[in-house]
Amino acid sequence: MTDPFYIYRPALELLGTSEGTDKGRGYNEALSYGAYTGGDRELVAMTLDQIDELQTAMLTHPKNKWNSSALGRYQIVRTTLRKIRKALRLTGRELFDEAMQDRMACFLLGGRGIDRWLAGKMSLNALLLALSKEWASLPTPKGKGYYGGQNASVSVGSVQAALYEVRRRRAEYGAPMQAAPDNGGGGTAAAGGAVVVVGTGAGAVTGADDWSGLAIWGGAALVLAVAGFVAWRNRDEIALAVYSLKTRFSGDKS
């Protein structure tokens, strides 16, 4: 599998269509096709810090009637991008390239519940509603835009078709479908391509009655070391679990 975002690619392609960026410059597209960025900009060659500066300039542009800083293929606004950077502990020196934009969009999909839906822990209508809050170009289950004054640019059927293809690919990949616990104890992440599950359960370490104390403590130390390594390897997924809980109650618009 050469595409690290293969499973979620149908949803990403849908967003490129709904946001209108694929008919323009795709990953290099900005709000109103560059009207508030001084023309076309090579966004994929800019660092995240440079993107933040550009978005700040967009918000102060006198003709920006939308008061928006949306840019990139998935039209991520400054407030959301800053939250993602904080959640993923990005330095700001990373490039806002195609891979980073895909990663961020998958992170947002995960935050809105796509992995819970894949695991059968969220209804399709609930997911549609959640996604319409993240991207105003997507419809609610009733086919309308979630935010007043802005219409959805694709049909409910189009969104459903993309999600069903994500589900088919998820089944094809063959990994277990597990959902993030509602209590925030663990989570799933879309940020790394295939769904990765961060478990909350701890395996019991048992031994025979004649084990020495040294062996018991040595085994415990090994378990802790492995757990620490797993936590470090899955830091994106842990960050997603925290971000997901915040997003479910904040209803931020992107």
Rank of each mutant, 00 (worst) to 15 (best):
residue 56 T to C: 02
residue 49 D to Q: 06
residue 121 K to I: 00
residue 241 A to P: 09
residue 112 R to Y: 15
residue 34 G to I: 01
residue 135 W to Y: 05
residue 22 D to V: 02
residue 94 E to C: 08
residue 227 A to L: 11
residue 2 T to A: 07
residue 106 C to L: 02
residue 156 V to S: 11
residue 107 F to V: 02
residue 11 A to H: 07
residue 128 L to H: 13
residue 59 L to S: 02
residue 117 W to D: 03
residue 135 W to K: 03
residue 69 S to V: 03
residue 225 A to E: 03
residue 128 L to T: 03
residue 180 A to R: 13
residue 97 D to W: 10
residue 62 P to A: 03
residue 129 L to F: 15
residue 148 G to Q: 14
residue 223 V to L: 08
residue 196 V to C: 03
residue 52 D to C: 04
residue 32 S to K: 12
residue 240 L to G: 10
residue 52 D to V: 05
residue 141 P to R: 04
residue 221 A to N: 09
residue 246 K to F: 02
residue 22 D to E: 08
residue 243 Y to D: 04
residue 66 W to L: 10
residue 80 T to C: 08
residue 76 I to T: 13
residue 168 R to M: 05
residue 80 T to M: 14
residue 79 T to R: 12
residue 57 A to S: 12
residue 254 S to P: 01
residue 70 A to G: 07
residue 79 T to I: 01
residue 202 A to M: 11
residue 113 G to R: 12
residue 80 T to I: 11
residue 129 L to D: 13
residue 230 V to R: 15
residue 177 M to D: 08
residue 188 T to P: 01
residue 112 R to L: 05
residue 246 K to C: 01
residue 200 T to M: 07
residue 232 W to G: 10
residue 16 G to R: 01
residue 115 D to Q: 11
residue 235 R to W: 10
residue 41 R to S: 01
residue 243 Y to G: 04
residue 29 E to H: 05
residue 152 A to K: 09
residue 179 A to W: 05
residue 209 D to M: 04
residue 195 V to E: 04
residue 207 G to W: 14
